[in-house]
Design a protein around this nucleic acid. Structure first.
Lengths: 194, 194
DNA sequence: CGCGACGTTGATTTGCCTCAACGATTGTGG
DNA sequence: CCACAATCGTTGAGGCAAATCAACGTCGCG
């Protein structure tokens, strides 16, 4: 069942035969991740690339002052990995933690390399997906420059309502780069306008 | 000569035979771009993917309030394109302008698609390069959250001294998301410390 | 030479943070 | 199942980093 989701995901991006899909997806293993468990911790080497089929993750770093910065949240149909650490097998800058009981399809480095080699279409798939991710990150960067904290909050809530409802203000704040207190003040403002 | 630069660039990332390199690079055409000329303007469709061999470009957007936000600067050995517009042939969000007399190797969409199809290694090359770009953008996003304006300025100057020397304060400010006046104040502070 | 773009500087303002105190809600062990 | 702790959300006072606005000096260029 979880593999069906992955297959549908792939078909949206590239043209795979049913046979290729089968071969490819068979290398992914279903993993249950309990709430609060870490899939990856900053400093370790990322041994997997994951595709979320259930639940929710936060992908974040902790800087020198101990502040948590959330790079993104991953729910059903999103990918989770530290790309840099996974592709180069170097120490990870990112941590990945489940915010609720979750399920992920994971593939290891050796299998992934083998598939890149044996199935050129896999290169294409990930070239396209990485490009899409890059474009959305570029837009987010520009938004961070041209929007105020309040505008970024509204944008996030409007764009990802299903994700937002799984999160605490603290987590949203760590994603937007603002304080939870300030989110509270934004909410009050909205409430008073109604 | 400009093609040699591109060849060296490719060899750094993937394993191409001399023959493959030759075939591939022959599809790139040398283009001269005079200072202040636009390679691409927001709203048009991006017909090219470019590799800079000389000069300097700014890749930016103008938001509703008329503020310019610089996504990045491209000098020798950097790529310039609006990925989203180029891959989907949709209207561009980005503008690309030469800051000095420059030279670019460009390839058009049809040739690029043909090469993706005929040479699977090209998929790999761009998958890898896009991943690297993504990682550096992720880090930049985190830096924007955890660093102050002054720290970001110092980081930029320390990381890209050769690029910085080609830029005005106004351009650096548009890249960092701060005002040119504030850069001026940072500089004064540095000067007074010596 | 004179114009326009850029850099500097100071005064003022403001968006957001910090800190601290206090409810509300959730989770947990007895 | 309740009590208590821990975590989270709210609120307000005060502070600070950086923006805004305006004026002026300077440099490169037509």
């Amino acid at each position: 069942m979880p593999h069906q989701l992955l297959k549908a995901h792939i078909k949206k991006h590239v043209d795979f035969s049913e046979e290729d899909l089968e071969t490819y997806c068979n290398h992914y293993e279903v993993t249950q991740v309990p709430k609060k468990a870490f899939l990856l911790e900053q400093g370790n080497i990322c041994r997997f690339e994951g595709y979320v089929t259930k639940g929710c993750f936060r992908i974040f770093t902790i800087d020198e002052e101990g502040n948590e910065n959330v790079l993104y949240f991953a729910v059903k149909d999103w990918w989770v990995t530290d790309i840099d650490s996974f592709t180069n097998q170097t120490s990870a800058h990112l941590s990945i933690q489940a915010l609720e009981n979750s399920e992920v399809l994971v593939i290891n480095k050796a299998d992934k390399e083998k598939l890149y080699h044996e199935m050129p279409k896999v290169e294409k798939l990930f070239r396209i997906m990485t490009q899409k991710t890059l474009v959305s990150l570029q837009r987010r960067l520009i938004r961070n420059h041209s929007f105020s904290a309040e505008e970024r909050y509204h944008h996030f809530m409007a764009t990802y309502p299903e994700i937002a409802q799984k999160l605490t203000n603290l987590q949203i704040a760590a994603y937007l780069g603002i304080t939870p207190e300030f989110i509270s003040k934004i909410r009050r403002k909205i409430a008073s306008q109604k």
